[in-house]
């Protein structure tokens, strides 16, 4: 009989018994509600073993790729180790190999890890400093292509981690990575499907990884990237992405800034464009019908939530919308003169 390992406990399943029923019978307080495969309350992740047949029905492709499954539908034939869906992976030691300024408020950090850090480009990981300070950043590099892990760090006023990275972090410094997490990444297949990727600020980091991943996979459908910023200074990786648009006839790169005139002297590249105005108004006008599209949204939390709703109403299937809202930890209040 199959044995399920969960948070240090082992439960032997009866013949034909679901993982959920087995856990509940053993007195484990496993989350659940409908017990019929719809509500997704009982979602869990396979850590070791095969994903039970039929237990991923109805889940997003990205969730399937992550090994998420429904315990109420799972009748494993072999032993299975599982964890809560959001349980972060182990911590891996890492070393800083490069720190570079990408724009006035974005720093690129490159790391190498002591052990392989299994992840998909576009997911995020938590960077842990030697004193325990921890912040999450998206991974902009591609596993299998890049020999380092690249993160784009936005400089936050009084930000503890970003300030340290910008001023004090040195090549060779020891840190750690915890994770990965997040569902913004490319799942190979459906190559003809049009892709729309919209990001603000360092929301560009995961989108860059997804674009590279899709092109590497031989994606043939249109790939539309829209990067939003407050003003022109917020755009970065412009040369790289413009070059990509020159090389790939199915990739288009648009920049949209809230304020200012476009003053750049960069010669216009094919399939690149610059717009001035609100990002959400721009994409609503440019993409009136998203039926059949796969959509990725990363960056400013309120904008991501609003655009996800828009993308769905504009026709994208709920399973094809992947969003990652970047939440910034509030900076500590400045000390007053008396403290």
């Amino acid at each position: 009989m199959a044995v399920v390992h969960h948070e240090g406990r082992s439960v032997e399943l009866a013949s034909g018994e679901s993982v959920l029923d087995g856990l509940l019978r053993a007195g484990i307080d496993a989350p659940h509600s409908c017990r019929a495969g719809h509500c997704q309350t009982c979602l869990a992740r396979v850590v070791r073993g095969d994903v039970p047949v039929g237990s991923q029905e109805g889940l997003k492709p990205t969730w399937r790729a992550l090994g998420l499954f429904l315990t109420c539908r799972a009748r494993p034939t072999g032993d299975l180790e599982m964890a809560a869906p959001d349980a972060l992976g182990l911590e891996v030691g890492a070393r800083i190999v490069d720190v570079a300024r990408l724009s006035h408020d974005v720093v690129r950090l490159r790391l190498t890890t002591d052990a392989p850090f299994e992840h998909c480009g576009g997911q995020f990981a938590t960077l842990v400093r030697s004193d325990g300070l921890a912040r999450s950043y998206s991974v902009a590099s591609l596993p299998g292509r890049d020999e380092f892990i690249e993160m784009h760090v936005r400089l936050v006023t009084n930000g503890a981690m970003s300030g340290w990275i910008a001023r004090d972090a040195c090549v060779g410094d020891r840190v750690a990575l915890r994770g990965p997490a997040g569902e913004c990444f490319h799942v190979p297949g459906r190559r003809e499907q049009p892709l729309l990727l919209i990001g603000t600020g360092t929301g560009l980091a995961p989108l860059r990884a997804i674009v590279h991943d899709a092109l590497r996979d031989g994606h043939t459908g249109r790939i539309q990237l829209v990067h939003g910023a407050l003003d022109e200074r917020g755009f970065y990786l412009v040369d790289e992405l413009s070059a990509l648009a020159r090389e790939h006839a199915n990739f288009e790169y648009a920049r949209c800034m809230l304020r200012g005139e476009h003053l750049s002297t960069t010669p216009a590249s094919p399939r690149t464009s610059v717009h001035v105005g609100a990002l959400d108004a721009r994409v609503r006008a440019a993409f009136p019908n998203l039926k059949g599209w796969r959509v990725f949204l990363c960056g400013h939390p309120e904008l991501v939530v609003a655009l996800r709703k828009w993308a769905f109403i504009a026709g994208a299937a709920s399973k094809d919308i992947h969003a990652d809202a970047f939440v910034t930890k509030p900076a500590p209040l400045p000390r007053t003169a008396t403290s």
Partner: peptide
Amino acid sequence: DAVDMDGQIAKQKG
């Protein structure tokens, strides 16, 4: 609540 769209879709499906 637009914040939990996936969760709400799961409930509607049920």
